[in-house]
Design a protein around this nucleic acid. Structure first.
Length: 319
RNA sequence: CGCGGGGUGGAGCAGUGGUAGCUCGCCAGGCUCAUAACCUGGAGGUCAGUGGUUCGAUCCCAUUCCCCGCAA
C-alpha cells in the first residue's frame, strides 16, 4: 500500500505535536482528521484559547474534532465514520482501548524520550533535569499500559551542556516529525518489526511537573540545581522566593545559571552578591550563579539589570 | 467579565498635589603599573495614551493600550 493513500487520523495538542502534523501534511500524507483538546479559557483574563494543533488544523482546513470525553459515543461514531487506516498520537492524552484499537493498522505514538526511559508526561524535561547526555524520540504501538508498547523506531540526539528545555524541545520536535513520517512509510510497506521495550538500566520515570518540582532547593548540589534550571527553562521555569526587610515575598524565576563547585562555610540559601553585577546563592557543594531571572511582576532580565534597581542586601531567600 | 502587580531619561528602579531622583550605562577629561577600580564634568525624560477633578497632576479619578505574576 502506498503510504500516501493511508487514511490517517492525527491526535495531539501542543506545539510539539504540530511539528509532526505539519510534516505529514506537507509530506502529502492523507490526514483525514485531527483530534485535539477542547477549547478552554486559559491565560490571563481567561480568554478562550485554541490548542496549537487546532490552530494549525484550521489554517490547513483539516477536519477537526474536540471531544470532551474520548469515550463519548457521538465522538466514537464520528471517528469511525472517518474510516481511518492508522491513527497517530503525539503529546495528547491517554486513549481508551476503543479508540486506539479502532483502525486496522493500529495506533502509534511519538514519545519524547528513548523508551523505556522516561515514561510519562514530561520526558524531555526530566532527561535534562537528571543531567543526561543524550535523549531522543521513539515511536511505538499503543497498548494498554501507557508508554510501554513495542518500539517501531527510535532516534537519539545529544544534550549539550548549554541546552535547555527550549532548545531540546525544538530539536526533538523536528526529529520526531521525521520519525513519524518514516514510521508511516514503514507501516505502509507492511513489514514493521517492532521490539519490546527492554532495558538493563534502572528506569527513570517522567512524571508531570508541578510547581513544587520547580522550586530550587539549595540543600542540593550546584550541578543538580543547574540542571533543574536548564530542564525547566524557559518554561515553566525554576524559581525561588525572596523576602525583603518588610517581610514582603516575591517569586524569582530563574532561567540561566552557572554551577560553581567550591567548598565554603556559607549556609545553603545565603545570597552572595557584590550588589552590582553578580549574584550567587550558596548550596551544598558550592554556589549557583544566577544570570537571567524574572522577578514576579517584572519582565525577564539579566541579574545585572535586576541588581541596578534592587537593594539585594535587604533580601533573603525563603527556604 | 477569574485574582493581583506594573508602565518615570539607553537599562533597572525610587519618589512627591507645585514640572523629578538613585544605581548602572553612555560622552568628555583626570588618576593609575593595573582593574567589571576610582575622581571630575556632561548629554539624555512631553513621568504610556486619552478625558476629568484642581489655581496647578508625573502623583487623585475614569478609560484605552501594553508588560508581568497567580490560577487554569
Amino acid at each position: 500500500m502506498n503510504s500516501k493513500d493511508i487514511r490517517i487520523v492525527f491526535m495531539g495538542t501542543p506545539e510539539f505535536a504540530v511539528g509532526s502534523l505539519k510534516a505529514l501534511v506537507e509530506g502529502g500524507y492523507n490526514v483525514v482528521g485531527v483530534v485535539t483538546m477542547p477549547d478552554k479559557p486559559a491565560g490571563r483574563g481567561h480568554k478562550i484559547q485554541y490548542s496549537a494543533v487546532k490552530q494549525y488544523a484550521l489554517e490547513k482546513g483539516l477536519k477537526l474534532m474536540q471531544p470532551e470525553k474520548l469515550k463519548d459515543e457521538a465522538f466514537i461514531n464520528e471517528l469511525k465514520a472517518l474510516n481511518a487506516d492508522l491513527q497517530i498520537v503525539v503529546a495528547f492524552r491517554m486513549l481508551p482501548e476503543i479508540v486506539w484499537s479502532m483502525p486496522p493498522m493500529g495506533t502509534f505514538n511519538l514519545h519524547g524520550s528513548l523508551l523505556p526511559q522516561y515514561r510519562g508526561a514530561a520526558p524531555i524535561n526530566w532527561a535534562i533535569i537528571n543531567g543526561d547526555k543524550e535523549t531522543g524520540v521513539t515511536t511505538f504501538m499503543l497498548k494498554h499500559e501507557i508508554d510501554t508498547g513495542n518500539i517501531i523506531l527510535q532516534e537519539k540526539t545529544p544534550i549539550a551542556p548549554e541546552d535547555n528545555i527550549g532548545t531540546v524541545y525544538d530539536r526533538l520536535m523536528e526529529i520526531g516529525a521525521r520519525l513519524v513520517t518514516k514510521t508511516v512509510d514503514l507501516i505502509a510497506e507492511g513489514n514493521v518489526k517492532t521490539l519490546p521495550q527492554e532495558s538493563s538500566e534502572e528506569l527513570r520515570p517522567a512524571p508531570k511537573i508541578f510547581k513544587e518540582t520547580c522550586r530550587l532547593d539549595f540543600s542540593k548540589k550546584a550541578e543538580q540545581l543547574h540542571n533543574l534550571v536548564r530542564g525547566l527553562s524557559p518554561y515553566p521555569a525554576a524559581w525561588l522566593e525572596l523576602e525583603n526587610e518588610s517581610g514582603e515575598r516575591r517569586n524569582l524565576k530563574v532561567y540561566e545559571t552557572e554551577a560553581e563547585v567550591v567548598s565554603h562555610q556559607e549556609k545553603p540559601g545565603t545570597i552572595i552578591s557584590d550588589g552590582k553585577k553578580t549574584l550567587k546563592v550558596a548550596c551544598a557543594d558550592g554556589y549557583l550563579k544566577l544570570k537571567s531571572v524574572q522577578l514576579s511582576g517584572k519582565r525577564r532580565m539579566t541579574v545585572q539589570e535586576m541588581l541596578c534597581g534592587m537593594k539585594i542586601e535587604a533580601e533573603k531567600i525563603v527556604l
